[in-house]
C-alpha cells in the first residue's frame, strides 16, 4: 500500500515506478514536485525510480505567481 499526500491510498505493485503512481492517481498538473519518503525525485527519474511498498509520496503542484 502507498500513501499519497497523507490522504490517498493506492495498492502497491512490484516494480512500480514514480510514473506508475502518477498515472494511477491521474494527475493532470503541468508542473509538479514529487517526494518519496521525504526525498525529492527529479522529473528525469520518474520513469525508473522504483517506489517501495509502504512508501509515502507527496505530490505538490507548482503554480505560477510570486
Amino acid at each position: 500500500m502507498l500513501t499519497i499526500n497523507d490522504r490517498d491510498r493506492i495498492e502497491w505493485r512490484p516494480g512500480m515506478t514514480v510514473r506508475d503512481v502518477l498515472d494511477a492517481m491521474g494527475y493532470t498538473y503541468a508542473l509538479i514536485t514529487v517526494t518519496v519518503d521525504g526525498e525529492l525525485v527529479e522529473e528525469d527519474d520518474y520513469d525508473h525510480r522504483a517506489v517501495p511498498d509502504g512508501a509515502a509520496l507527496n505530490v505538490f503542484h507548482l503554480a505560477h505567481g510570486g
Binding site: 508542473l31 514536485t33 525529492l40 507548482l62 505560477h64 505567481g65 510570486g66
Partner: peptide, 29 residues
Amino acid sequence: DRAEAKRWLIESWCRAYPGRPIVVASGLA
C-alpha cells in the same frame, strides 16, 4: 514567479545541499 523556475530551484538546491531546507511558495493568486 514562474513555476518552471520554482521546480529547477528545488531540484538544484536539494541536489547541492540535501540536508538544508527550502521553503517554496505555490498558490497565492
